[in-house]
Amino acid sequence: MSDASSPPPPATPLVWLLRSHPEAAEDYLEFRWVVARIAARLAAERATPEDMQRITAAFQRLEQAHDDQRLDEEMAADIAFHRAIYRATHNAVMHHIMERLLGLLGDDVFYDRAAFYRHGETRADLMDQHRALYQALARKDAAGAVTAAESHIRYTGKALRQWRTAQARRSVARRRAGRIGADEEA
């Protein structure tokens, strides 16, 4: 990537550090895995009717965008859904910290989220996971919410590793394609 196409430095130094060190992606997902379990349990136990309204609105927005195949809207709704859950934990400290980290998520820090979503199967899987999490929260099923949140983050990690492998293979293929072009010109 050329310097000109690099994104401008974001406000929080940690975001910059993580952005320029993709090896931290695994740590980021592991950290989120730990936090998501706590958040899912607390939200299932504590969500007020207003919280649940907010979560439901975000989920319906996600579903609608998914059905309409509007990628940008689906990604934005995904983040809004998770934010509504963190808010429903009624833990001010966790909410404060995760608001800063969710900024990272929306930032495309570690992977090309759009590429994730463009992959039809992945998109459908993510929708199913969000639905499972939503339904567990709606029936105030803490154990179910924890399981759903946990497998959602784990899936993201797996998809990230697959995406990276695919990217690496793609650049090999691009180099080979370039060689063939050179052969023909020669």
């Binding site: 730990v34 936090v35 379990r37 706590i38 607390l42 833990n91 001010a92 400290v93 966790m94 404060h96 910290i97």
Partner: peptide, 19 residues
């Protein structure tokens, strides 16, 4: 946050428990 929320030390420790 600590000043405005009555149980923020509790929130910090609740978060810490899992982490």
């Amino acid at each position: 946050l600590m000043r405005s929320s009555p149980d923020s030390p509790g929130d910090y420790l609740e978060f810490r428990s899992g982490m």
